[in-house]
């Protein structure tokens, strides 16, 4: 039997189906958030100003097309969105999409660093723990990871700020530090100040994932380590590093990698709390401000974008998975 991955007809159909599903989900998401945020506040009150009279408010409502029936507003939004026009922010009166994209690099850099930290530490500690599960040190690590999972991000962030910024004064408590702009991308990776500013928020954001990846690696490793071929490897007298990393970890890593990929999208989309605590100028921070000010176009665009990112990553992971593991059937 030939087990080499191949692009078959079944696979193409599978991909097409996943893509169609994706579009339907996106439409559903847009409809739901359109409905929710239409009833969560009336932007006209802010848009017209505090002292506007009732008539002046109606005039503004008309000017922004908010007096039209719901279905017209929605279809107009979808038609425009299909052409890449997501409307103007009610608050800053510039295109909503631009506002979000401007914040995109900050969030991506934060999420990437967080996932990097949690992957390296999570897998590293996971392997360590799996080798001697009952050692006292490893029991501490496991208990610590449980603590990580249960601790709210908000608290982690504040505690880290208090310890490292206020008492030890070694790391800055907020913001992105100095940034360098390359094209449209404003990066904090290239300056020392940028990197020091990244450490605390990245740890805070990655903390939960770290614990999840640690536990996943440990479980996987413990299972693999009991397999016959590992015993054979030990029996052959291979060096421990080779047995652990080459033979065992490689096989234990598949679910870990899948998980990492899926989590990445969520980190990008929902780093709201971390970004708010650290005043990180990313998309999550913008979303929260926009919700406070009922800036509908920004909220809806953001959620659509987040849904798009998560969906794409899901589809990519699924396809890769299917591609890598020929045992997966596409029905």
């Amino acid at each position: 039997m030939d087990l080499r991955p191949r692009l078959t007809l079944a696979m193409i159909i599978y991909i097409a189906r996943r893509l169609t599903q994706g579009v339907v989900v996106l439409l559903a998401v847009s409809l739901i958030c359109f409905i929710i945020f239409r009833y969560a506040g009336d932007p006209v009150v802010t848009l017209a100003g505090r002292y506007a009279t009732l008539q002046e408010r109606e005039m503004v409502r008309k000017a922004f097309g908010l007096d039209r029936p719901f279905y017209i507003q929605y279809t107009r939004f979808i038609a425009n969105a299909a052409q890449g026009n997501f409307g103007k922010s009610f608050v800053s009166r510039v295109p909503a999409f631009g506002l979000i994209i401007e914040r995109f690099p900050a969030t991506v850099e934060l999420a990437t660093s967080a996932i990097f930290i949690s992957f390296v530490l999570g897998v590293g500690l996971g392997v360590l723990v799996s080798l001697k599960p009952y050692a006292l040190r490893n029991r501490f690590i496991m208990a610590g990871s449980l603590f990580n999972i249960s601790m709210p991000t908000f608290l982690t962030g504040i505690l880290l700020i208090m310890v490292f910024a206020v008492y030890l004064k070694v790391l800055p408590p907020f913001g992105r530090g100095e940034t360098v702009t390359i094209g449209f991308w404003r990066t904090g990776f290239l300056t020392w100040s940028g990197i020091t500013h990244l450490i605390l928020p990245a740890f805070t954001l990655g903390m939960y994932q770290l614990a999840v990846l640690l536990r996943l690696t440990r479980a996987g490793m413990r299972e693999v380590l009991t397999e016959e071929y590992i015993k054979t490897a030990w029996a052959k007298g291979l060096p421990p590093m080779k047995v652990i990393f080459k033979h065992a970890l490689r096989n234990a890593l598949i679910p870990v990698v899948t998980m990492t990929g899926l989590q990445f999208g969520e980190l990008i989309a929902f780093s709201i709390i971390t970004e708010t605590i650290f005043q990180w100028p990313g998309m999550g921070n913008l979303l929260l401000t926009s919700i406070y000010e009922s800036d509908q176009p920004v909220i809806v665009t953001y959620i659509m974008l987040a849904a798009l990112i998560i969906l794409s990553l899901n589809i990519i992971v699924d396809i890769l998975y299917a591609y890598l593991n020929p045992k997966i059937r596409y029905d």
Partner: peptide, 11 residues
């Protein structure tokens, strides 16, 4: 209304 929240003063 496209650029102002001082509609009341303007009007």
């Amino acid at each position: 209304p496209d650029v102002s929240e001082f509609i009341n003063t303007g009007k």
